[in-house]
């Protein structure tokens, strides 16, 4: 960030405990929507979604202790539609060590924005198998969709400007906006 030319303002949209509560609620909603968790698998999108998928797996286990929900991660950089337009460095390594054929896959990410990452993830999932259905869980839906994609489970709908930066961590959700001086 170039602090000298552009002033920016930070605002805390959700506190740390708010994020934890949102994760707990989404865990309950996933179990409710799918009548239990027996056929559910979680796939966190690298990199922002993986810790949230881990947390969701823990909460679901607390709700339905008779089973452990399989939890994997997916890196979509090779499936993006902006390869060559901006530099893309393969970020992290996908790890889906369970069969997704016939499963209910819940994709998990921190922020839903244009929807392009989710599109890439849907395509990448095809290489691993054919799920019964795919659902999407995000902590923040910040709007500005460019594709017909909508989330099934949302922590918070957060109106933002296109230039804003939204950072989700376990200590809260911070929105950084540029302020024209």
């Amino acid at each position: 960030m170039n602090q000298e030319q552009k002033r920016s303002s930070n605002r805390m949209a959700l506190s740390g405990p708010d994020v934890q509560r949102a994760i707990s609620r989404i865990a309950h909603e996933i179990v409710e929507r799918n009548h239990g968790a027996h056929n559910v698998v979680l796939v966190g999108l690298q990199r922002g979604g993986t810790w949230i998928a881990d947390a969701l797996a823990e909460r679901i286990y607390a709700i339905e202790p008779e089973l452990t929900v399989p939890n994997g991660s997916l890196d979509v950089s090779m499936h993006r539609d902006d390869i060559g337009i901006r530099p893309i460095v393969p970020g992290a390594i996908s790890d889906i060590s369970f069969d997704i054929n016939g499963a209910i896959v819940v994709l998990v990410d921190d922020v839903l924005y244009t929807g392009r990452t989710v599109r890439a993830a849907l395509e990448a999932l095809n290489n691993f198998g054919r799920p019964q259905s795919v659902q999407l869980a995000v902590i923040v839906d910040r709007g500005h969709r460019e594709l017909p994609i909508r989330p099934d489970f949302v922590g918070k709908n957060l109106p933002t400007q296109m230039g804003d930066e939204v950072v989700v961590s376990d200590s809260g959700v911070v929105v950084t906006s540029e302020v024209s001086s």
């Binding site: 950089s77 090779m78 993006r80 390869i83 390594i93 996908s94 790890d95 290489n127 691993f128 198998g129």
Partner: peptide, 21 residues
């Protein structure tokens, strides 16, 4: 070398093909 570890994961997938290029 770093990027090749990423590609190695793609090669372990049931369908080892991505649309990148």
């Amino acid at each position: 070398l770093e990027s090749a570890t990423h590609m190695a994961e793609i090669n372990r997938r049931p369908i080892p093909k991505v649309p990148a290029l």
